[in-house]
Design a protein around this nucleic acid. Structure first.
Lengths: 104, 104
DNA sequence: GACACATATAAGCAATTGATTATATTATAA
DNA sequence: TTATAATATAATCAATTGCTTATATGTGTC
């Protein structure tokens, strides 16, 4: 059952938060690492899973790889995301705090 | 994040199938065991998780405990369930095959 | 009460998973 | 080309999970 696999992907706090962040705007890996206060390999592996499932897409720009949402193919994912809390505050804090940022 | 916990519940083939079966009609534990061709403790434990999350409710009738859906409280669950395949055929087969049934 | 049947709970185990640490790759800049 | 920064991959480990076997609880019947 394919839906069970997709739900397994969604059933993780870190991945749900990544999706919620990307809902606001595209982000590079280091920004997500900074916001979620975890390691870079951790985020990279979560992003790979999300990419494999077609939930996010990437675009390399120089050194940085930017990830963005692509939920259109999986309809119920949108319904689920409606119940994931907003991450606007977390995003605002890194936007203000430019000196600490990994990429500009 | 509460939604991550609920999604973990849904992200399991067996539990999704149980919910899909209960979508058709209420069932007692032994019927579900028969349809899914697994052990009784296995199903009982899945049902307990679903009950704790408020996704199913139980009603004892004699020796038998009947389970039924109660999805109303969690809106996105309905959206997810729309993508879980029908189990009508499996249900029909045990309905015809009365001799093998555990309860009547 | 004693027995049979339906269900629940407990204990144990193998498989999966999320995270960490270490290393490799890719791109930019000096 | 050498150094540095961003990202990806690999290896490892602890924690969680789904299932099984064994046992307990509950209900009806004799």
């Amino acid at each position: 059952m394919k839906i069970a696999e997709t739900l397994k992907l969604l059933a993780d706090r870190t991945r749900l938060t990544i999706l919620a962040l990307l809902r606001e705007r595209e982000l590079c890996v280091c920004e997500i690492v900074e916001i979620l206060e975890t390691t870079q390999p951790n985020i990279s592996q979560h992003l790979r899973k999300l990419k494999t499932a077609g939930l996010v897409s990437e675009s390399r720009r120089g050194q940085w790889v930017y990830y963005s949402l692509s939920l259109t193919e999986v309809p119920y994912v949108q319904a689920v995301m409606d119940y994931v809390p907003s991450t606007k505050e977390q995003l605002d804090s890194i936007d203000l705090d430019c000196t600490d940022e990994c990429c500009d």
